[in-house]
Design a protein around this nucleic acid. Structure first.
Lengths: 202, 202
DNA sequence: CACTTTCTCATGCGAGTGCATGGTAAAAAC
DNA sequence: GTTTTTACCATGCACTCGCATGAGAAAGTG
């Protein structure tokens, strides 16, 4: 993705940027979006403030970088979980489960994600970035629903696009509720299966 | 709710606190949670910083006050919309619609609400406050579902508690998505009706 | 070697932060 | 009338903020 001149020095810019982005994630997760500052992130990343500034010219850009990283991370996790699932319905279930805060890592991811969700309401930069990944995931879900219908796993009369929207909204809402402390991982999984069972063929 | 001695002076404390809380809401809505400060809120409320400090000893307390106000506000809106609905299913639909960002005021409310939702993840104070209202609304929804089942409007085999959780999660997820800019009010209403239709008896 | 480019750092600046303080009107209590 | 309580304000303090700057290692190039 980066411009190829002749590799000017020994440092890998992408690695540094990712390192910074991950430091931002950690700060957001531990102390919240309000305590993200250049100094705090630099300390968390184990580098000087000047070094951070070299790779990121402004705070807004730093947050945007961290947000894009989250998107990439989610994409990778989803792609990894898709591989090796036997049927479309299995894929569908696995992907949605992957988006829910069912273990420490997914909880971490969703905490940061929710922070950006809220931040995006006010910062148009970030809202635009969020709007990029959204239809990607939604159309993928719809596609899996259609495939499951073709395989006779889900009821044929369902509107795949609408069901995808509802399913994803449900997942997001569950994330919110769980992060505030209202559901246990077991309850979350049970609710998802309850909803999916309803969509079954027969 | 306030202590009754002998009305010490002419000012109404509750009114002042509400005035401050509403100023906080406006700041959050317009500029985001990160730009909430005692000075900013005081300016928005049209009073001096000292006056704000008189009614609110700390910033955390100020935010908590604003959060509680949001809860009260939502409660009032829900109560108002319940009155005059003919059947349990009408009540259910009206209440959920009331929670969605379908017009300017509800959009405003949900913007502030989402900001607090995210903030609550890090600030235990606020998370505790959020956890108060949650089961209230959920049990109310479940109750309406059961009533609708008794009236033959919703399928008898549904698990009311689970359906209430799913319905509310769906609503919250839709709120998130809509605020980021992914759905229009019409699409939102259509999705809700699509989901409710699925629960129908027959 | 000199020299350019790449990278890192320390520091300074103006602005804004939460909060504490001391003072002051005015109403209420005596 | 004096005193006490209530309500409010202006200001100060120690601190943090984002960002700009200039200096200087470090590595590649001639």
């Amino acid at each position: 993705m980066r411009k190829w001149r002749e590799m000017p020095k020994i440092v890998d810019h992408d690695a540094r940027r990712r390192h910074i982005a991950e430091a931002v994630h950690r700060v957001i997760h531990d102390k919240g979006m309000e305590s993200v500052s250049l100094r705090e992130v630099a300390a968390e990343a184990g580098m000087s403030m000047g070094a951070v500034q070299y790779y990121v010219t402004t705070k807004d850009q730093m947050l945007l970088l961290a947000l894009e990283r989250i998107g990439i991370w989610i994409g990778e996790r989803v792609a990894a979980v898709v591989a090796g699932r036997p049927t479309p319905l299995d894929v569908l279930r696995a992907v949605v489960l992957e988006l829910l805060p069912l273990d420490e890592e997914r909880r971490y991811l969703n905490r940061v994600g929710l922070a950006f969700q809220a931040s995006s309401v006010t910062v148009e930069n970030q809202a635009a970035a969020m709007r990029m990944g959204y239809p990607l995931l939604l159309s993928f879900l719809a596609e899996q629903i259609r495939a499951a219908q073709a395989a006779g796993q889900l009821a044929a009369h369902l509107d795949a696009a609408k069901e995808a929207s509802i399913l994803y909204a449900f997942a997001q809402g569950i994330v919110n509720a769980t992060l505030v402390g209202h559901y246990t991982p077991e309850e979350v999984a049970a609710l998802l299966d309850h909803h999916l069972a309803r969509l079954r063929a027969g």
